[in-house]
Design a protein around this nucleic acid. Structure first.
Length: 420
DNA sequence: TCTGGGGTCCTAGGACCC
DNA sequence: TCTGGGGTCCTAGGACCC
């Protein structure tokens, strides 16, 4: 019984290096929207002590002085590189779950009798490196939670191939003993605090507790984690991509926004984008929520957060309906006199696009289904034209600051790398 | 000055029913 | 003085993930 976890090393930072061989040993960090936080670090940057999620302004000076290279996030590019890696993996295994942009679980049960899994992992790793330039690490173990532990162990004992398998009880217990409780998949900040209070500080101690006791004292979720650590598979490979249950579009602003008019145009932009995503998913929603909030970090200033959910009588994915609902929701939560730092829209309560639920109180004047109109707009927007709705802010999508973005090397004809 | 964005699952407790 | 019991459904919020 074995699963594998393939994890792209420092993914965004590695992507930035692919078309910039001159940056081979240079420390690299990639920043979040607005160039706010550090969200990816190359090994060199990690060694310099740059933490995950630290505000960029706090480390900027020393990082750059030491010769570091910084990039704003270029998600279009990372998404494309991710698809290439996943594509290769799909060709090698019967079962795959793409877990995030830089991770995938592989089902290895059927390969086990024909292959040496460790060698198989090394082979896949070298192919991915050769074909995409992305370095990956592979952990192999009986359960998902243990594959994460295997990766941790590989790092601790510094496995040069970056591929590591733990399968015997001895290997597993040794790896568990060396994993701090906080590094266990499913144990976050709060849980690790509670567990530490109960004198449970490493994964082995957690694994040795009766799962039933854990369920009573903590939760069903942690019980599953314990069983997984003991080698009992509770989480399977989920290869049918299940439909989304909610869609969120939100941003922090580069500059604070205090007036309703500006805020409304920003929220309109979010609504338009969220509706596009919804149509892409072939779903309709019947709930639209909007939220706004001031910056929790400016605690000397008056704070306000507001959120409001609108129910729609008929499920829709028409931008016009969603825009109306979003603007209605914004009105009661906006209060003048506050400097807003972030806003967002959340669509939920999805139904399939093709099923139509008629309202008991159907308005006889309600227009006929005009989904063709939105399809047409989507088509236009996919090319060079850009159709806007009147309430949108057409100058900037959201008031964001970002100016260190690398080219869209692989997704734009105009930005293809040039070989000289 | 400057602190990300987008998701999932679980659960306690409220609303409601008979 | 004393004010049922048991069930379902829904939702907001918490915790976690990358």
């Amino acid at each position: 019984m074995a699963l594998a976890l393939v994890d792209c090393e420092s993914f965004y930072a590695s992507c930035e290096r692919i078309f910039r061989p001159d940056l081979k040993n240079t420390p690299i960090v990639v920043l979040s929207n607005n160039d706010g936080c550090v969200i990816a670090r190359s090994t060199e940057a990690k060694k310099m002590g740059i933490g995950m999620g630290v505000p960029w302004f706090k480390v900027k000076k020393s990082f750059l002085l030491q010769g570091g290279q910084v990039f704003s996030s270029n998600f279009t590019f990372y998404g494309d590189m991710s698809a290439r890696v996943m594509n290769i993996l799909e060709g090698f295994v019967p079962e795959i779950e793409i877990y995030s942009i830089d991770e995938a679980f592989l089902g290895m049960d059927s390969l086990e009798e024909h292959y040496n899994l460790y060698e198989f992992g090394c082979y896949v790793r070298s192919l991915i490196k050769q074909w995409t330039g992305v370095p990956v690490r592979i952990g192999i173990a009986p359960t998902k939670t243990l594959t994460k532990i295997a990766l941790n162990e590989a790092k601790r004992i510094n496995v040069p191939t970056k591929v590591h398998q733990i399968s015997t009880t001895k290997e597993i217990r040794e790896a568990l003993r060396n994993t701090p409780i906080r590094d266990v998949w499913g144990v976050g900040r709060r849980l690790s605090e509670h567990l530490n209070q109960a004198k449970i500080s490493n994964a082995l101690q957690l694994a040795d507790i009766d799962p039933n006791y854990i369920k009573r004292k903590f939760s069903l979720v942690l019980e599953r984690t314990v069983r997984e650590l003991r080698g009992q598979r509770c989480l399977d490979i989920e290869n049918n991509v299940s439909a989304k249950k909610q869609i969120v579009v939100s941003r922090s602003f580069g500059n604070r926004v205090a007036d309703l008019k500006t805020l409304r145009s920003i929220v309109s932009n979010f609504a338009v984008r969220a509706s596009e995503k919804l149509r892409n998913e072939k779903q309709k929603c019947s709930q639209v929520s909007v939220f706004v909030r001031t910056s929790p970090f400016s605690n000397h200033k008056p704070q306000h957060t507001g959120h409001k959910t609108m129910e729609l009588l008929n499920p829709t994915n028409d931008t016009r309906d969603i825009l109306i609902a979003a603007k209605k929701a914004l009105l009661p939560i906006f209060k003048p006199g506050y400097d807003y730092a972030k806003a967002g829209i959340l669509l939920s309560r999805f139904t399939n696009e093709t099923t139509k639920q008629y309202s008991l109180f159907k308005d006889p004047n309600e227009p006929k289904d005009n989904s063709k109109f939105m399809k047409y707009i989507d088509q236009l927007n996919n090319y060079e034209t850009q159709i806007y709705f009147a309430s949108q802010n057409t100058k900037r999508w959201s008031p964001m600051k970002q100016n260190m973005t690398s080219p869209k090397y692989t997704t734009s004809w105009y930005e293809l790398p040039i070989v000289k």
